[in-house]
């Protein structure tokens, strides 16, 4: 049986590489090919990238990336204390369990239905505006609540919040309690213990959380489609519109640009992390 497992493992890994990893590289290859209808011709051309530049899609990537970055930072700011609370100081097991469940279920909720409901809540006659009017916060319904960057931001923060909390919670759980005690014993108050011990030790989880929040937020298609209002194009809109017009080389070029940006971010993050941990 061990021999069976021994030969199955490399086989599975090969399959995984062929089916999951190779397509990631295929995008870069297709992006520099010439297209003819649904098919590609095996000759090299940078036309795909030219089309991207012409249609202003680099700006779309940048704008969506900034929004996704903002979403991740807000999730980090609110998620870090929640993760530490979950991992360290949740006194009531029942409350902690409820929060765990609440943070697990969003992985499994249907994105379209949830976002549609949010659209009804944020609209001019929706419950949020009605509430604000009733409280005399505003005199007229706020029109920027829906079909705006703000709406997309709200639509993204909720669903991807658990992606931030989970990895940080796991990494805080792995920190030896004695280290935090030693920190306090050496005279570090809550802030210094956080800054010099907890934060550096939870950094792998924080980085994982940033990746797992920013990347799906960057590529989310449902939220911009239902809450963005079509006035502004987001990354997913660009991918969809390029592929519905069967411009697959430009779509592949867009995918390649996104992956290059992500690789660049990861690399610079890794370098910054190495410098930080050395100093």
């Amino acid at each position: 049986m061990r021999r069976l497992a021994g030969s199955a493992a490399p086989l599975f890994l090969c399959l995984w590489v062929c089916l999951a990893i190779v397509p990631l590289a295929v995008g870069a290859a297709v992006s520099v090919l010439q297209r003819r209808g649904l098919h590609v011709v095996w000759s090299l051309t940078p036309a795909g990238y030219g089309e991207l530049a012409e249609s202003g899609r680099f700006g779309v990537v940048l704008h969506t990336a900034l929004l996704a970055g903002l979403v991740s930072l807000v999730c980090l700011a609110a998620g870090l204390p929640l993760a530490v609370w979950l991992a360290r100081s949740a006194k009531s097991a029942v409350l902690a369990n409820i929060v765990w469940i609440c943070l697990t279920a969003p992985f499994f909720l249907d994105p379209a239905a949830r976002t549609l409901s949010l659209r009804l809540m944020l609209g001019a006659h929706g419950v949020v505006n009605a509430g604000l009017l009733a409280l005399h916060v505003t005199r007229a319904p706020l029109d920027w609540l829906l079909f705006s960057d703000f709406a997309v931001f709200i639509g993204l923060v909720g669903p991807y919040f658990p992606n931030m909390v989970w990895p940080i919670t796991l990494s805080v759980l792995l920190i030896d309690k004695a280290l935090l005690e030693a920190s306090a014993d050496l005279g570090a108050g809550p802030w210094h213990s956080f800054r010099f011990t907890l934060l550096p030790l939870a950094m792998p989880g924080i980085i994982a959380g940033l990746v797992m929040t920013a990347i799906p937020a960057l590529g989310d298609g449902v939220v911009p489609a239902l809450l963005g209002g079509g006035r502004r194009e987001y990354l997913a809109d660009a991918v969809t519109s390029l592929s519905t017009s069967m411009n697959y080389t430009a779509a592949a070029a867009l995918a390649t640009v996104v992956m290059a940006v992500l690789c660049g971010l990861c690399l610079s993050g890794w370098l910054a992390w190495r410098r930080l941990s050395k100093s």
């Binding site: 030896d176 004695a178 280290l179 005690e181 030693a182 014993d185 050496l186 011990t197 030790l201 941990s277």
Partner: peptide
Amino acid sequence: TATVFQHYALFPH
């Protein structure tokens, strides 16, 4: 006070 912990609790980072 200052403590030397049983397993030292030295900061690994």
